[in-house]
Simulated scan of single mutants.
Amino acid sequence: MPVCDQRISNLELILISGYPSSGKTYRSQQLLEFFERKISESEDPKVKRLKTQHIDDQSLGLSRDVYATARAEKDARATLSSTIKRVLGRDTIVVADGMNYIKGFRYQLYCEAKAVQTPSCVVHVGTPAQKSRALNDEALKSSTGGYEPEIFENLVFRYEEPNGMTRWDSPLFTVPYEDAQPPYDAIWEAMVGSDGKAKVVRPNAATVLKPASEQNYLYELDRTTSEVISAITVWQQDHPGEGGGEINITGAEEKIVLPSTAPSLPQLQRLRRQFTALNRQHTLSKSRIQTLFVDYLNDAFQS
């Protein structure tokens, strides 16, 4: 993906996240109606030229059954991601109304947005699991569908709630089930701004996606991330039983800040696999791999 120029671009990505049957599409429609009304009533030409785009499983021809198997779900996420990248353009507000329940996937979309200087936010539909379960049961009994119980419970179990302390989930707007409407004005201000200009998002080497051209890139990605994990485990061996702590990684811009509860080696390896999967198509120098991976770990440790 080429690097965009430095002009301000009025395009925004809004990720909707929540439990299955929590009302994500309902909240999406509320936001779309508000945006369209706001655009039509505005006299500002910068706002007038805005348009909206709603993307959900139904519009992509994806059934709820895709979440029954890992392979089908992976393909569904790829379809959603490619569609979002395709429709992101100037003067477009994209509402991505999907499951978006995996933080690694939200991170991936955050990177895609930042690479083209697109402001993004996450709207968390905060319907409790019990209420979502009841709504899903009602949907199964009606013609509107719903998720099969096994799929529903699996998705709830694996749901990774957005955390506003991480960059890819920020700014974060949570909409409780009891609230009649989302915080329209706050979301509009964060995405479009009071003057019709969204904040300028500048890409950096860590989020600009380019085809992997270095023959040894994947090897370097694997080796460099392994070195970071090794540095953490060595530090933990030298400081047994200690929580917290900071670790310097040669070449990285920031230190690793460990949480109060020391992460286990399986947890660290899982984070490493997630990171390498998300960055297989990047072309980054070793120092940028280190910096981005340290950044990724610090965000994960905070969540």
Rank of each mutant, 00 (worst) to 15 (best):
I232L: 07
S194L: 11
Y184K: 02
Y177R: 06
V228G: 01
A206C: 11
F173Y: 13
E220A: 10
S213H: 11
M191P: 03
P211V: 09
V208Y: 00
K210F: 08
A190R: 02
T225G: 04
P203T: 07
Y219N: 11
W188H: 05
K197P: 00
G196E: 01
A206T: 15
Q215E: 12
S230N: 13
S213P: 04
A180W: 08
V201H: 02
E214V: 08
S230H: 10
Y219E: 11
E178H: 15
P171H: 02
D195R: 13
I229M: 09
Q215G: 11
K199G: 07
L172G: 01
I232V: 14
R202N: 07
Y219L: 08
Y219M: 09
Y177S: 08
E189G: 13
A212L: 09
N216S: 15
V200E: 13
F173P: 00
M191L: 11
I232Y: 07
T224A: 06
A212K: 06
A212Y: 01
Q215S: 12
Y217D: 03
S230I: 12
T174E: 11
P183K: 08
P171V: 02
D185W: 11
Q181Y: 12
A198G: 15
E220Q: 12
L209H: 00
E227T: 13
L172Q: 02
K199Q: 09
A212H: 08
E178K: 15
Y219S: 13
Y184R: 00
Y217M: 04
P176D: 11
E178A: 10
T224R: 06
A186Y: 05
S170W: 03
L209T: 00
I232K: 02
E178S: 15
Y219F: 13
E214K: 08
G196T: 04
A231P: 03
V201I: 15
R223W: 04
I232G: 05
K199S: 12
T174Q: 12
S230L: 13
T233S: 10
S194D: 14
L209P: 01
S230R: 13
S170Q: 05
E178N: 11
D185I: 08
R223L: 06
P211N: 09
D195E: 09
A212M: 10
S226L: 10
P176Q: 09
N216M: 10
P203K: 00
E227W: 05
K210T: 12
R202C: 07
T225I: 03
M191G: 01
Y217W: 06
T224W: 03
A231G: 08
S194P: 04
D195C: 09
E178R: 14
T207W: 05
V192K: 00
E227G: 06
P176A: 07
N216Q: 15
S213M: 10
V200Y: 10
P183D: 05
L218N: 10
A186M: 07
A186F: 07
E189P: 04
Y219W: 12
R223P: 00
E214H: 07
V200K: 11
K199R: 15
N216W: 09
A190F: 04
E227A: 14
L221D: 01
Y177D: 14
S226P: 05
A180V: 09
L221G: 01
I187F: 05
E178F: 13
P183G: 07
G193E: 06
P203W: 02
V201K: 00
G196M: 04
A190Q: 06
S194Q: 14
